[in-house]
Design a protein around this nucleic acid. Structure first.
Length: 211
DNA sequence: ATTTTCAAT
């Protein structure tokens, strides 16, 4: 794999500023999305693409990504003929914020209609997830039900992103103060949010059994 | 203890 030009990579400062998993991320009025798109071509070969996006005025970065999806995943919807076999892709993205409720809803709908696309989402910080009944929390659960694996970024994920998406110019990734503690706190929070899926399912099961 | 959030000026 040939390394992309620096201009296609994220500046170091930008990456650190936007992906820092601090509790009060003041001034992060932008969201970055670093992605890797993979397609299995044969038993040992794989097509591969990667890059990053930033939200634009009036368009959250997740929906922007969906706009580019056709170009990133040729054949995802078949190659014209309806009998044509659709190609399967798996996408991993790393987002500085977790998706808002609306994006989660639209993504879930899209994924439910596109079973040949697998999506894994890593997030640096949780967006509006403080309130127990926030719509953003509900959105994350909806994504999980649509088969998305949602994970909070840990050191190894930042390290990977640094190596893959950042114009690091041979400098190695240096963790900021509190990276690990913040990760642990956020991962617990996300687990609590997503576990509600299971208690809900359990409640439904009980109801079904008349218990 | 409290602080922020894909802005709005």
């Amino acid at each position: 794999m040939i390394t992309k030009l620096d201009s296609m990579l994220l500046a170091k400062k930008k990456f650190i500023y936007h992906y820092k998993n601090i509790r009060w991320a003041k001034g992060r009025h932008e969201t970055y999305l670093c992605f890797v798109v993979k397609r299995r071509v044969g038993p040992d070969s794989m097509s591969f693409d990667f890059g990053h996006l930033r939200n634009r005025a009036g368009c959250h970065v997740e929906l922007l990504f969906l706009r580019y999806l056709g170009a990133l995943c040729p054949g995802l919807w078949g190659c014209g003929g309806s009998t044509e076999k659709k190609l399967s892709y798996s996408i991993t993205w790393f987002c500085s914020w977790s998706p808002c409720a609306d994006c989660s809803f639209r993504l879930s709908q899209f994924l439910n209609r596109t079973p040949n696309l697998r999506l894994r989402i890593f997030v640096s910080r949780l967006y509006f997830c403080d309130l127990e009944d926030s719509r953003e929390r509900e959105g994350l659960r909806m994504l999980k039900k649509a088969g998305v694996q949602i994970t909070v970024m840990s050191y190894k994920d930042y390290f990977y992103c640094w190596q893959t998406f950042v114009a690091h110019r041979m400098s190695s990734f240096k963790a900021w103060d509190g990276l690990h503690q913040n990760y642990v706190r956020l991962a617990r929070k996300l687990n609590r949010i997503l576990q509600a899926c299971e208690t809900e399912d359990l409640r439904d099961a009980f109801k079904l059994l008349g218990l």
